[in-house]
């Protein structure tokens, strides 16, 4: 788990601004799905939100109380805390297209250039 957490820290930008995207990835232990989800998320962010994103990884095995706050049922779940409104994306984020739509980074049907 520490690997994921440290990875998240490494990728966080130094100076947050208004455009900053706050993303939270809920996982439960270091499962393959969690690892896949994290790497997929990092890739998408690097590509579409370079320098203006912040990823926080929450391990529910360590902080089970946090599950209630964001109404987390599924693992892994990506929650877009900012910009509002809150968005939740379930799964290992393997379908990049759907992730982008889910994060409002692209409208449905828009082609990846």
């Amino acid at each position: 788990m520490s690997k994921l957490a440290s990875a998240a820290k490494k990728n966080s930008p130094k100076a947050p601004n208004q455009e900053m995207w706050e993303l939270r990835l809920y996982v439960a232990g270091q499962t393959s799905k969690s690892v896949t989800a994290f790497s997929n998320l990092k890739k998408i962010c690097e590509e579409h939100l370079p320098g203006k994103y912040h990823i926080e990884v929450v391990d529910l095995l360590k902080n089970p109380t946090l599950a209630k706050g964001d109404q987390i049922l599924a693992i892994p779940t990506l929650v877009r805390k900012l910009p509002t409104p809150i968005r939740k994306i379930l799964g290992d984020l393997s379908d990049t297209e759907r992730v982008l739509v889910g994060l409002d980074l692209r409208q449905m049907g828009e082609q990846i250039t």
Partner: peptide, 25 residues
């Protein structure tokens, strides 16, 4: 447990471990 269908998107594999953890807790 509140689930808003409109703020949820599915991408790939997942499980309901979150619910389990929550219930367990």
């Amino acid at each position: 447990v509140r689930i808003e269908r409109n703020e949820i998107a599915e991408t790939g594999e997942y499980d309901l471990e979150g619910l389990f953890i929550r219930l367990n807790h």
